[in-house]
Design a binder for these strands. Sequence first.
RNA 1: GUGGGCGUAGCUCAACCGGUUAGAGCGCUGGACUGUGGCUCCAGAGGUUGGGGGUUCGAGUCCCCUCGCCCACCCCA
Length: 408
Amino acid sequence: MSIKFKKIRGTRDIYGEEFEKLFFIFEKSREIFSKYGYDFILTPAFESKELFEKSTGETTDIVQKEMYVFEDLSGRKLALRPEGTPPVLRAILENNIEIPCKFAYFMNMFRYERPQKGRYREFFQLGAEAVGFKEPYIDLEVLLLAEDLLKNLGIKDYRFEINSVGCISDREKYSKYLRNILKDKINNFCENCKRRYERNPFRIIDCKIDKAKIREIKSLMDFLCDDCRRHHEILINLLEKENFKYVENPLIVRGLDYYTRTAFEIISDRLGAQDALGGGGRYDFLLKDMGGPDSPGIGFAFGVERLMLVMEDIKKKDKALIYVVYVTEKEKDEAIKWVRKIRENNLYADMEWDYRSLKSQMRKANNKGAKWVLIIGEEEIKREKVKLKNMETGEEILTDNPFKFFEK
RNA sequence: GUGGGCGUAGCUCAACCGGUUAGAGCGCUGGACUGUGGCUCCAGAGGUUGGGGGUUCGAGUCCCCUCGCCCACCCCA
């Protein structure tokens, strides 16, 4: 046998235990999100390419080199969504949904990257957006919500890392400062940093190789304007007051252009190099940039596959299987009748549809973990009974009403 | 996009320095047990050694290309 088709790189087939986990996360998250007043939303898998260029940002890696872009037959330039925030905000604006509002989503995303542990080209994100809340109190709620989700999924080894990335003018000031102070030194830095200097100077302070050289460089925190500083201080006070466990990490930059002020990541050390379970932050100017009202927003997303990696296996509780076997083809019709009758009583029944030897049917029942086997042969039909076998004890009973043995 | 490791039966893996018909365990099918699963024993089916090209008398093994998987860099969920 040589299979003709294979799934394409970075995509996955999800079944069995994996599917159970994925669906468990979805069901659990619906419970949690409804406690916090978030409604679920589903948006199209593809949007205009421009939506992401204008919101995620032209300079980001996501837009520059990771988007699945294509033209449809009419020549429209489209993109498979690489992230959830722009489509959800677009939907809020387009449907005239009253702001403030809170939405959650569980959707697949697409990014053209080299696959790695916890990283795929099609993956699921579980996220939320809270639009129209200016004060840091919503930041607190979002963080509490994210942690509530983790706790309810039974995930333990995580930490919240929090930072403020200021507003756009703060970042411009900082960017100018960095370029200035590094102008003469950059040639001594590693190749990565040289590239970062041009594209994204913030990343240089995160460099592991040139750690020593950057010690005297000020952090973005020192460049926050009064409003941004105040926002951050209130949030930190709130977190302390609410006893929320976190660490401040001034190196968090986030790869998206629209973030302002609060930015955070949820890190797990049970993952490989891709150690972020999730991340998020504020985007106070994005709605306006998208042609909407001057409303702030905050959101976050978890990588569902990464959650699955750090979660314990879940035990799926099936109904007890009742397997119906027939001795020869002659009893097949009778077997079908019994399977239907059992299912009508909301019990789990199955049988071998293509005839195989009784031995083979019994083996199948055993392999499937059947609790009961209903045996139908010439003898049973003649006496208008069935033989019921308990697969744990091996005990057999001849009865005309097997239902009294199936405890519900 | 860059670097490293790896592709042999459905699964996990063997096969010396290039040598004859590519093996084992598990799983599967059948039998011992003609109307009965698990345990044991016996037998059987199952392979274009990821694909293509090259070197050689001879390639699973060496070389080149390609596809895929894993890990890391970059970046991110």
